[in-house]
């Protein structure tokens, strides 16, 4: 039994790496803009499809991650600056913006579905030999995925802690109006957040299919609740929080999968998000302290 638990923790760490890449991006985006952007999931799908197409054209291996990141930036820019910002200018409330992002998700997801003929595509990636570590089993590729996540985390933390842009990002996430009053060019900083989160979403999509080796139009949408749970559990805007929450969620869902099967692990992941949204101090408030302003 205990070996099963240890192995599940190993699988959970791999899952957590993939979740954390996406969650860091969503956390930045949500922390800065305050828009609950459900269309984030389709950016993952587009990144994954970009990697699949790149592979078909002969670009294989880790170059696909860069292509995915590029596609993620473009898709996020179009969705964020092209659509959500246009709607936000009409003084819509938080609920209207979540519905718009849901509609965008519906349109993109089913456009991909219509274009690809509702198929599940398989992607090939050499997983390498199995390595054993403290009773957990990892393939070489899985270790590299963990490396990508750690690398993304370290780079992002350095950016946030050591540069002026990073300082401005944290300031806008904390208190947008005060940041603007202090002379921080809020809209430019929000643009930085869109680009960073788009790149992270694209990378998360590619890493997801490197691990699962399949992609369909619904890949990102199915994976989205776990990202949202990690980003909000770790407090929106906090990259470290997103990573820690991803670890908790990745390991918890894998433990449930070991006990009750994969169907229940999905349910557990979604359930964590519901609990997080219900319990989050910023989520449930007594009324007046609602942060309802949108920065786009």
């Amino acid at each position: 039994m205990s070996s099963v638990v240890v192995e599940s923790i190993g699988f959970g760490i791999v899952d957590a790496s993939i979740i954390s890449i996406g969650a860091m991006g969503f956390s930045l985006q949500f922390g800065l803009t305050n828009v609950f952007n459900i269309a984030y999931g389709t950016v993952l799908t587009l990144g994954a499809f970009a990697a699949y197409l790149a592979e078909q054209w002969g670009v294989v291996g880790w170059y696909d991650v860069l292509i995915g990141a590029g596609v993620g930036v473009i898709a996020t820019w179009l969705i964020g600056k092209g659509i959500l910002a246009t709607f936000a200018r009409r003084n819509l409330g938080l609920f209207e913006l979540i519905t718009v992002s849901l509609a965008v998700e519906l349109v993109v997801q089913y456009s991909v579905d219509a274009a690809d003929g509702e198929q599940l595509f398989s992607y090939s990636f050499d997983q390498g030999r199995a390595l054993r570590f403290l009773g957990m089993v990892f393939t070489v590729t899985e270790v590299e995925i963990i490396g990508v996540a750690v690398g993304a985390f370290v780079l992002l933390e350095c950016l946030l802690r050591l540069t002026r842009t990073g300082k401005a990002l944290r300031a806008v996430a904390e208190e947008p109006r005060l940041a603007r009053a202090c002379g921080i060019p809020t809209s430019r900083i929000v643009n930085v957040a869109w680009v960073l989160s788009g790149a992270l979403a694209g990378v998360a999509g590619v890493v997801y299919i490197i691990n699962s080796l399949t992609v369909s139009a619904f890949t990102g949408t199915d994976f989205l609740p776990l990202l949202l749970a990690a980003a909000i559990l770790g407090r929106a805007g906090s990259v470290t929080g997103a990573v820690v929450a991803s670890l908790a969620i990745g390991i918890a869902t894998q433990l449930v999968a070991a006990v009750g099967g994969t169907g229940y692990s999905t349910i557990a992941g979604f359930g964590i998000l519901v609990l997080v949204l219900l319990a989050r101090p910023g989520g449930v408030t007594s009324g007046l302290a609602l942060k309802t302003e949108v920065t786009l």
Binding site: L273, V274, L290
Partner: peptide, 17 residues
Amino acid sequence: RMRADYQAAILLILALI
């Protein structure tokens, strides 16, 4: 009583669950 977008997200995820 909670943020409207959180409430919408909770109900959406419940449908999926």
